[in-house]
């Protein structure tokens, strides 16, 4: 059977979709325009296979083979003074060609240059861990595993970092719904009370703008409060809420709104 695709507004879509829209891109420059980067790239090309390279926003981007990553980062750190791994993560291109793009953002403090190493891996492949080169990659690779499901070989502790260990799904995938799949929606109920409790507790209410004036289970009208679960028809009695009961409380000072002092000066 063919996969179902929504056809809600297939007729109207042509009127508000620009067929010739091209997403704007940051202009690319040749690496030769910057002599520091050009020297770095030449040194890199001697030892490793470089697929593509250019400069964007004064930063050099270099595409390499996935298997070279440990050697490239080691070479950059030890020979070319790119001593900081600022950030690393993945980009989801699964819908386009079933690949992930992995990037490593490097910083050289002495050259005052930033450089980005990138490569593609197929869905399901693992990357080589650079944790033994940069300690900060420990958590970054765990986060990548948590959010994308990409494992890192030779990592000392390849477990989820943000989400609980028994979580299912990888939330930064573009196929993952923002409000969560069914597992996420029932996670706390299933874990604490068991699946049988789903009927009792009920589904999540995700509409934050939802207000039901006649629902006394979930809503209370200020000044017209009724006990929870009361049937409301629309003519509730006014319910004046004072701080304390009318008769006062034993040994406790009586607070009244009328006798209270109102402080107007915010700089008091």
């Amino acid at each position: 059977m063919r996969a179902y695709t929504p056809k809600d507004d297939v007729q109207a879509k042509a009127y508000y979709t620009d067929r010739y829209y091209v997403a704007p891109q940051v202009p690319k420059q040749e690496v030769e325009t910057d002599e520091v980067f050009a020297a770095d790239l030449a040194a890199l090309k001697e030892k490793f296979d470089v697929k593509e390279s250019f400069i964007q926003m004064k930063q050099m981007i270099v595409y390499i083979n996935a298997s070279d990553i440990y050697g490239v980062l080691e070479f950059l750190r030890d020979e070319l003074t790119y001593t900081q791994l600022s950030e690393m993560s993945a980009i989801d291109w699964l819908a386009k060609d079933n690949t992930f793009e992995i990037f490593y953002q490097m910083l050289s403090m002495t050259k005052r240059k930033r450089l980005r190493i990138k490569f593609f891996i197929n869905n399901g492949d693992a990357v080589d861990s650079v944790e033994s080169l940069f300690r900060c990659a420990d958590w970054s690779e765990r986060e990548m595993f948590d959010m994308f499901g990409i494992e890192a070989n030779n990592h000392p502790f390849m477990k989820r970092i943000l989400l609980p260990y028994d979580w299912q799904g990888n939330p930064l995938l573009k196929t993952y719904p923002l409000e969560g799949d069914e597992f996420a929606a029932w996670y706390e109920v299933d874990k604490i009370y068991g699946k049988e409790a789903r009927d009792v507790i009920g589904p999540e209410i995700r509409d934050t703008a939802r207000v039901d004036r006649y629902d006394s289970e979930r809503f209370a009208r200020l000044g017209f409060e009724v006990p929870k679960g009361t049937e409301i028809t629309g003519n509730e009695e006014p319910n004046k809420q004072d701080y304390q009961e009318e008769g006062g409380v034993f040994l406790v000072k009586k607070f009244t709104k009328d006798a209270s002092k109102i402080i107007d000066d915010p700089q008091r």
Binding site: L163, P171, Y176, P177, L178, E179, G180, D181, A184, A185, E188, V189, I192, I201, E204, I205, R206, T208
Partner: peptide
């Protein structure tokens, strides 16, 4: 109360669910 502005997969939509 309701999950507030965090209408996401990782937030409990109101602590009265627990």
């Amino acid at each position: 109360n309701t999950g507030g502005m965090f209408n996401t997969y990782a937030t409990v939509q109101g602590c009265d669910r627990v």
